[in-house]
Simulated assay, not measured.
Amino acid sequence: MIYPIVAYGDPVLKQRAKEITPNQLDLKKLVDDMFETMYAASGVGLAAPQIGKSIRVFVVDAEAMDEDNLKGFKKAFINPQILEETGEKWAYEEGCLSIPKIREDVFRQPRVKLRYFDTDWKEYVEEFDGMAARVIQHEYDHLEGVLFTDYLSPFKRQLIKNKLGNISKGKIDVEYRMRFPAVAKAGRR
């Protein structure tokens, strides 16, 4: 099932997501649906809040970024916890399915150590670096209620303020289904 992507401005994107427990939901079905939704939107990562579910789950498949350390980098992360971020921060232009057509440089550390579970509830502690670490940090931020635009300077945020407002109102053309918070509110009146 392909979910609509929740657009900038929806409160679910600013909430800290809740951990899940085994048997709380059909986790394998949810993860399959999240991958399907991500692929339909041509994304490389998708967090559960982006489909309106405030739970600590995200998926990544960054092989399309065509970098050596991303070959076969397709995973689901359940209840992830960043244990450590190391290295000198570096800039890279990031985008987000919930904030279409806006890309800005974000500084992140190049290495991350993460504890997480897979869909069979097997626990892992792994280290990732380079673009894999960046993709994980971006999606992990979604679980913390943080968007990449939160890293921008006040000046940069001011420059994109109108674009962000238009996204929340649905005044943007995208090639995937989205759920716009301002449009939903207008429909309830």
Rank of each mutant, 00 (worst) to 15 (best):
A64G: 03
A182Q: 12
E104C: 11
V135F: 04
F107R: 14
G45I: 01
D141C: 15
K28N: 04
C96L: 13
D150N: 15
T21L: 15
N166Q: 11
L97Y: 06
M38G: 03
G165L: 02
A7C: 14
L114Y: 03
R189H: 13
K75E: 11
P11C: 05
V112Q: 03
I2Y: 11
Q137K: 12
F107T: 09
L70F: 02
D32V: 00
E144T: 10
K169Q: 06
K74L: 04
I102N: 02
Q109T: 11
G52F: 10
A17Q: 01
S98W: 02
K28G: 05
V31C: 02
F128G: 07
K171G: 01
K71G: 09
L25R: 09
E85L: 15
A91L: 14
M34G: 05
L164H: 06
K89Q: 14
A40C: 08
D120T: 13
E126K: 11
F155Y: 08
A133C: 04
I78T: 07
L143H: 01
D173V: 10
D129M: 11
R108L: 06
Y3K: 06
Q158T: 11
R103F: 15
K71R: 13
D26I: 07
Y151D: 13
V31P: 04
A17M: 10
E36T: 12
I172Q: 02
A17F: 03
P110W: 05
R115P: 05
V57T: 06
V174C: 10
L164E: 08
F107I: 13
M65K: 14
M178A: 15
I172D: 05
G9E: 01
A7Y: 07
Q81R: 12
M65C: 09
R134N: 10
A64P: 00
R177A: 15
G87H: 00
P22M: 03
V174F: 00
C96W: 11
I172T: 00
E126A: 06
N79S: 12
R111N: 10
N162P: 01
A132G: 05
K171L: 12
A91V: 14
G9D: 02
I136T: 04
A132K: 10
Y124C: 08
F35C: 07
G43Y: 04
G45A: 11
D118P: 00
C96K: 03
V106Q: 01
D26R: 08
Y176C: 08
G52L: 09
A48E: 07
I172V: 10
D10I: 05
R108T: 02
I51G: 00
Q109I: 12
E94R: 12
L147G: 11
E139A: 12
V112R: 03
A40W: 02
A62H: 03
P22N: 06
V183S: 05
N69D: 15
L46N: 00
P49D: 04
I5A: 05
P154T: 06
E93T: 15
G187L: 15
E36F: 06
T21S: 14
D68T: 12
M1D: 14
D61Y: 01
A76C: 09
P154K: 12
